[in-house]
């Protein structure tokens, strides 16, 4: 009951406000085109009828929420998942490269963090480059990666996954450096009094201490991975995936399709972040975390 009052009601209130603003915006943004149509057809609709028309255009400037919802519902639940028009199909294409890129990125991020924590030379040299790597606009890098890899015969899932990797290794590397350095001086002294080796200190102290940091950064990384996968789909010639769907919608002015694809992407992102959070909670629980 408290959960409903404290969590769900506030979130739903904001959602309702957003939907209301969206409807108002849709009316205003679609009005000029509708007025144009009416003038040419020689019609003079009343206010209510006019508003109704602005919210039901086939290719509106700004689709109304119910149009997007209807499109999303039809393309998610009413089509065969193997169909080229199914959002489930496109989501799966994007999800698979997201997951692969996320796995690469997490592994790479952890590897870099371990290196930075244990090798002084890496600590001094690597961090500025890692930060610099994230200041390059991914939209500029992505087509080059795709083109270069295609030239050496690597196509399909891997190039897209690499763009996800590029975006997702960063939060993991930064989070894990912090996590591996999080043990208190007292705990390190304790290991020293046991004459523990560096690898014992690493596995028995640094790694367990870094787990909460790992999951916090993985939440950010998985969302970044999805963005990377979608961006990676844009220059592939719009074959499949949420990115391809967005691009095709833009070509043919299918604004409702674009918005529905956007919703699909958001749903996938939310599911991924929630999933990582849940796994993090389970792991924390199994490591004796105090139930919150």
């Amino acid at each position: 009951m408290d959960r409903v009052r404290d969590k769900i009601i506030p979130v739903l209130t904001i959602l309702a406000a957003l939907v209301a603003v969206w409807y108002v915006a849709a009316v205003f943004m679609n009005a000029p085109f509708q007025r144009d149509l009416d003038r040419r057809a020689g019609e003079t609709p009343g206010t209510i009828e006019f508003i109704g028309k602005t919210l039901s255009q086939p290719k509106p400037t700004m689709p109304a929420p119910h149009q997007v919802a209807q499109n999303f519902f039809e393309n998610t639940f009413l089509r065969k998942v193997t169909s080229n028009r199914s959002l489930v199909y496109h989501s799966w294409v994007t999800l698979s490269s997201t997951l692969l890129g996320f796995a690469f990125g997490t592994a790479l991020g952890i590897l870099i963090a371990v290196g930075i924590v244990h090798v002084t030379a890496l600590d001094r040299s690597l961090m500025p480059w890692i930060i610099a790597s994230q200041t390059i606009p991914i939209l500029a890098v992505a087509p080059m990666i795709i083109v270069v890899l295609a030239a050496i015969g690597v196509t399909g899932l891997i190039p897209k996954a690499l763009i996800s990797t590029y975006l997702s290794f960063f939060p993991v590397a930064v989070g894990m450096v912090k996590g591996l350095r999080s043990p208190e001086v007292m705990h390190l002294d304790l290991m020293h009094t046991y004459n523990a080796s560096a690898s014992q200190t690493f596995w028995k102290l640094r790694v367990p201490a870094s787990v909460p940091f790992l999951f916090a950064s993985m939440k950010v990384a998985v969302a970044a991975s999805l963005v990377g996968a979608i961006v990676g789909e844009l220059p592939t010639g719009a074959v499949a995936g949420i990115g391809a769907k967005l691009l095709a919608g833009a070509y043919y002015s299918q604004t409702i399709d674009i918005w529905a694809a956007l919703v699909a992407g958001s749903v996938v992102a939310a599911m991924l972040v929630v999933l990582v959070g849940l796994v993090g909670k389970l792991v924390e629980r199994s490591m004796g975390g105090r139930p919150a």
Binding site: H187, A196, M287, G288
Partner: peptide, 28 residues
């Protein structure tokens, strides 16, 4: 390993049970 050291704070590892904490030096 000629001595045991007790710090100002208990300095137990929060992810280990008491028994695993006591076992830590023995594992090492």
């Amino acid at each position: 390993r000629a001595y045991g050291y007790v710090f100002q704070a208990a300095a137990l590892l929060p992810w280990r049970t008491i028994e695993r904490n006591v076992a830590l030096p023995l594992e090492i």
